[in-house]
Lab assay of single mutants.
Amino acid sequence: GFTKEQQRLGIPKDPRQWTETHVRDWVMWAVNEFSLKGVDFQKFCMNGAALCALGKDCFLELAPDFVGDILWEHLEILQKE
């Protein structure tokens, strides 16, 4: 899971503390893990605080249908851990 990747890359547990690099690493991991298609990494050029502050509607505009939902749900789980 993502926990191993977080440990390997030194990504903080709390997504709100992520840098732009951490956000990119997470999106890249999720794309590979969940076989997601059509993700534009440029749209995720922000730090974790900005990403978490978007709200669901704005977040879902960053990625194609269903893909955004998967990313959003995973981000929500990470914020609760």
Rank of each mutant, 00 (worst) to 15 (best):
V23M: 01
I70S: 07
I70K: 11
T21G: 13
P15M: 06
L54C: 03
D65N: 15
L75A: 01
L9I: 08
L78V: 10
Q6F: 10
H74R: 07
A49T: 11
S35A: 11
P15H: 02
E33Y: 10
Q7P: 06
E73C: 06
G55E: 15
Q42G: 14
K37H: 11
F41D: 11
Q17F: 09
H22S: 04
L54R: 07
K56N: 03
D25M: 11
S35N: 08
K13P: 14
N47K: 07
I77H: 15
R8D: 10
N32R: 14
C58W: 09
W26H: 01
D65F: 07
F66T: 15
K13I: 13
T19N: 08
G10I: 07
E20P: 11
G10F: 05
F34R: 06
D25I: 12
G48N: 02
D57Y: 05
A49K: 15
N32G: 13
T3E: 14
K13G: 10
F66M: 12
I77V: 15
P12H: 05
T21W: 07
L71Q: 00
Q6E: 08
F2C: 05
P64V: 01
P15W: 02
D14Y: 05
L75W: 10
M46T: 04
V31G: 04
F66Y: 13
C52R: 03
L54N: 06
W29G: 04
R24W: 06
W29F: 06
M46S: 02
A49Y: 06
F59D: 02
K43M: 05
G38R: 08
K56G: 01
Q17E: 15
I77R: 13
L62F: 06
D40W: 02
R8T: 09
S35L: 05
A30F: 07
W72S: 02
G68K: 03
K43R: 13
W26E: 01
V39W: 04
L60K: 15
W29T: 04
P12Q: 01
G55S: 15
V39Q: 03
F41C: 12
W29D: 02
G38V: 04
L51T: 00
S35W: 03
K56V: 03
L75V: 02
D25Y: 13
W26P: 01
D57L: 07
G48A: 00
Q17T: 15
D65P: 15
N47T: 15
E76T: 08
E73G: 10
G55M: 04
L62E: 03
D40K: 07
A53M: 10
A53R: 12
A50D: 14
G38N: 15
V23N: 01
A53C: 08
D69Y: 12
G1V: 09
A63W: 13
G55D: 15
D69F: 06
T21A: 14
